[in-house]
């Protein structure tokens, strides 16, 4: 399952964003931020504690099962009285959650997390970015490993000069995507795929902001 990978903002930044808003309602999420330990029940309670210590008043808190889901509206409605006593909502969900909540309510929303990437948990506490939704999938020619996402430079035609014994020049803890692609294609006897010249990429397949209306087929027609 794909996850929205987040990290907590430093407390100083959170306090700066809250500014003079003394009364705060805290919202977490039971899905991605719970798994990443950035905005689940435990983190929400820890944030409550920290805010109280700095003199804030926490009017209540809530951990929504899936903050980016439309059911979020119901959960919010049930907690309206405590929210109305606050001056702002401090939100420990990813940016999808913040924007979903913002769509249903007209309260000042303050994100307590930064959303890093859409990725996958590949080991305990270890998350990796898997897709940047570029709109032009070339996985069929790269052994199922995405260079647009996994190569720091998003290179399409093979490794740069910074490839370093299977690692990337920017971080020895990061793999060189093109070494992984090479090894995979070699194993499959498909290195010819790597020899194919990939022409300049279309970065405007779906110009930002993404918005697509699909024609839905009517059932029975």
């Amino acid at each position: 399952m794909i996850r929205s990978i987040t990290k907590q903002k430093p407390l100083a930044e959170v306090l700066e964003l809250l500014g003079e808003m003394e009364r705060v309602f805290i919202i977490g999420c039971g899905t991605c931020t719970t798994m990443a330990h950035t905005g689940g029940q435990a983190e929400v309670l820890a944030m409550k504690q920290k805010l109280v210590e700095t003199g804030k008043v926490v009017t209540g808190f809530l951990v929504i099962p899936v903050a980016c889901d439309n059911l979020t509206e119901e959960a919010l409605q049930q907690n309206l009285p405590a929210m109305k006593e606050s001056q702002s909502l401090l939100i420990l969900t990813c940016a999808f959650g913040v924007q979903t909540i913002n769509r249903f309510l007209d309260f000042p929303v303050i994100p307590a997390l930064d959303t890093l990437f859409i990725g996958k948990e590949i080991g305990p506490g270890l998350f990796e970015e898997v897709c940047i939704q570029c709109g032009g999938c070339i996985l069929g020619e790269t052994g199922g490993i995405c260079p647009v996402t996994s190569c720091h430079k998003g290179l399409l035609n093979g490794p740069c000069g910074g490839t370093n014994n299977g690692k990337c020049e920017i971080d020895r803890n990061k793999d060189c995507a093109w070494t992984l692609i090479y090894e995979r294609l070699q194993k499959q006897g498909r290195l010819s795929a790597m020899r194919k010249f990939q022409s300049a990429k279309n970065y405007q397949v779906e110009p930002k902001p993404g918005k697509t209306l699909f024609e839905l087929e009517r059932s029975g027609s």
């Binding site: 998003g154 399409l156 740069c160 020049e169 920017i170 300049a200």
Partner: peptide, 21 residues
């Protein structure tokens, strides 16, 4: 070279093209 190895580490990397392109 990659942006993070330099002296403007928070800059946006472009890489719209690669060297072959």
């Amino acid at each position: 070279d990659a942006v993070p190895v330099g002296d403007h580490k928070t800059a946006k990397s472009v890489f719209d093209l690669d060297s072959t392109q």
